[in-house]
Amino acid sequence: MELDEVDRRILNALQGGFPICARPYRVAAECLGLSERRLTARLKRLLKERVLTRFGPLYNADRMGGSNVLAAMAVPEADYENVATIVNARPEIAHNYRREHRLNMWFVGAGETPEAVEAAFRQIEAATGLVVYRFPKEREYFVELKLKL
């Protein structure tokens, strides 16, 4: 989809800061020089065309009392699909990506407690015979949201 000037203005201005008030679309639209209806119609289209993944709150799972840990494995290519099936079958595994490296499988374990995540990693190690490298966050550096279009 081709973005026009109005789409770009909306995307650049509304990656955050959407107000919490009775008529937030109207308030946001006024700041952009648009009508409320025009803004919601544009957002509808941007969502339908999948330019936006979603419009709404972006939560920080780390601050919700649960535990999220990034982990990786070096999986032999011949076993890759089998290992992916074993890893993905665990409900604690939230994301799993193939990456081009000796450590070629990267996933996130998510659970109510660090112990629950650790138990899932141990079970994956037992089921695959591979080492799960744990990469828990030691520190998060501030990132601004700033994709400019």
Binding site: I10, L52, L145
Partner: peptide, 22 residues
């Protein structure tokens, strides 16, 4: 929502762009 935002549980409210589509 305001309390969660103040506590950092809610990072922000707005458009979440699809990097791939863009």
């Amino acid at each position: 929502l305001a309390a969660m935002q103040a506590a950092g549980v809610l990072r922000r409210i707005g458009a979440v762009p699809n990097h791939y589509a863009l």
